Simulated scan of single mutants.
Amino acid sequence: MDLFGEAENWETKLNPILKKYKERKHPLDYQNTYQLLVMVVLSAQDSDANINSISPVLFEKYPTLKNLSKTDFESFLPYISKVRNHTTKAQWLLEIAKTIQNDKDIPLTMTRLTSLKGIGRKSANVILRETGKPAEGIIADLHVIRVAPRIGIIKESKDGNKVEKDLMSVLPKNIWSEIGMAISFLGRETCRPKPKCEECLLTDICNYYNTEFPKN
Rank of each mutant, 00 (worst) to 15 (best):
M1P: 10
L3Y: 04
F4C: 02
G5P: 05
G5L: 04
E8S: 10
L14Q: 10
I17T: 08
I17H: 00
K19A: 13
K19M: 10
Y21N: 11
K22S: 15
K22P: 09
R24C: 08
R24F: 13
P27F: 09
L28K: 13
Y30L: 07
N32M: 06
Y34M: 08
V40C: 05
V40H: 02
S43W: 07
S47F: 14
A49K: 14
S53W: 12
I54F: 05
V57I: 11
F59Y: 05
P63L: 00
L65S: 01
K66S: 09
K66I: 01
K70E: 14
F73D: 06
F73Q: 13
Y79I: 03
I80F: 02
I80L: 00
S81K: 06
R84C: 01
H86A: 07
H86S: 06
K89N: 02
Q91W: 01
E95D: 10
A97K: 09
T99E: 05
T99I: 04
I100P: 01
Q101W: 00
Q101I: 12
D103R: 10
K104V: 13
I106P: 01
M110V: 09
T111Y: 14
R112Y: 07
T114G: 10
S115D: 13
S115K: 14
L116K: 09
L116P: 02
K117W: 04
I119F: 05
K122A: 09
S123N: 12
V126H: 06
I127W: 03
L128R: 12
P134G: 15
E136S: 11
G137L: 04
I138Q: 00
A140R: 02
H143G: 00
H143T: 04
V147S: 08
A148G: 08
A148L: 12
R150S: 15
I151C: 15
I153F: 11
D159T: 10
N161G: 01
L167I: 04
L167T: 04
M168E: 03
P172C: 13
I175G: 10
W176N: 12
E178I: 09
G180F: 04
A182L: 11
S184I: 09
S184C: 11
F185T: 05
L186V: 06
E189H: 04
T190F: 02
C191V: 02
R192D: 03
P193L: 06
C200Y: 08
C200T: 10
C200Q: 09
L201T: 09
L201V: 03
N207L: 13
Y208T: 06
Y208H: 04
Y209F: 15
E212R: 11
E212P: 00
E212I: 01
F213V: 03
P214F: 03
K215M: 03
K215H: 07
N216S: 12
